[in-house]
């Protein structure tokens, strides 16, 4: 079981309290009703799924219930950083 630092609870908590919620930093288009099929495909269906550094959403569903973002290395399974929803992608150096 991983330990995940919740940026709202400001401490590491057991993974059992969290739920993964897919790739981060994919904003719903403001004008979603007007976008083309191609734009909708990119927004809704296409995900990067890289090996290594990923930015993903988690929810502390059995804790503070907040959604937040995390940078994680899928090779080492290490969290490099977690940050609040709405904050920009952090610049990461070193690992990942």
């Amino acid at each position: 079981m991983l330990l995940i630092h919740c940026p709202y609870c400001e401490e590491e908590r057991p993974e059992a309290e969290f739920r993964h919620a897919g790739e981060a930093h994919i904003a719903r288009p403001q004008n979603i009703a007007e976008i083309s099929d191609e734009e909708f495909e990119r927004y809704f269906f296409i995900r990067s799924n890289p090996k290594g550094l990923v930015f993903e959403r988690w929810r502390h569903i059995h804790g503070c219930a907040r959604f937040f973002n995390a940078a994680r290395d899928t090779v080492s399974d290490r969290f490099l950083k977690t940050y609040k929803a709405g904050e920009p992608k952090p610049a990461l150096d070193g690992e990942g």
């Binding site: 739920r19 919620a21 904003a27 959403r57 929810r59 569903i61 219930a65 959604f67 929803a85 709405g86």
Partner: peptide, 13 residues
Amino acid sequence: LHHMEDYLQTEFP
């Protein structure tokens, strides 16, 4: 509820 919270917190905060 999870689906609604997701939109509320992250798309329509």
